[in-house]
Amino acid sequence: MSDREQILGRIREALTVTAPKPGAHGTGAGHHGPAVSPGPSSTRQWLPLVGDSFEERVALFRTNSAELKTDFQLLNSREELTAALIKLRDADGWKRIGSHQGELTQVACDALGLPVCRTDATYDVRELEQCDAGVTECDALIAQTGSVLVTSRSAGGRALSVLPPHHVVVVRREKLLPDLQAGFELLKSKYAANYPSFISLITGPSRTGDIERILVLGAHGPKKLTILCL
């Protein structure tokens, strides 16, 4: 019998007896009765609250970004976007960037006027490793958590948004979603026929607390995350 058959056989046999439902045992219930049972479809109502209007969501995204040490900028025109990019380039002395095909990434590359390592087709990892920033688009921003939702299709593959020391996201404000649930719904409607092989929720620049639980940014991934939202 193959390992596969053995394991599946053992699982089937084990499951002939049903386990008690969670919360069936009395702990902590005291005289106050058992916990209410939600049902999986309604988990949104237990999670951190997100406002209904665009303004509330931007405000939440901004607060989350500040806490995560993400640089979030809400911009009102292409000119402001260009200016913000140039400011970043000059402040850190960028020499080359990595990027991919896209409406806003094209605007960014044009504005920056630097050599670009493109990750749309096979590329040289060593070359990408030498880049000062990775400029990508994304699928969505998530207000609830301050996250950027990317996929290998929307953000130039797996490495572009993690290998260079600075990740810059250029995104239109229509892409701001309320919460994670909405993010997963979007993925489903957009890709269900054929998902990209890589999907990620990026929440702030790379970090570690492995030394005395003290926060350090830029452990392996980018030290900086900038979101330029048009």
Binding site: S147, S152, R158, A159, N194, F198, I202, T203, G221
Partner: peptide, 24 residues
């Protein structure tokens, strides 16, 4: 686990590099 609202990277992997993808 860590006292964070969400950890920094939560990634899903559904296979090796797919047709049309540039890395992985």
């Amino acid at each position: 686990g860590a006292g964070q609202a969400l950890t920094c990277y939560n990634s899903l992997y559904g296979g090796p590099r797919q047709p049309g993808e540039s890395d992985g």
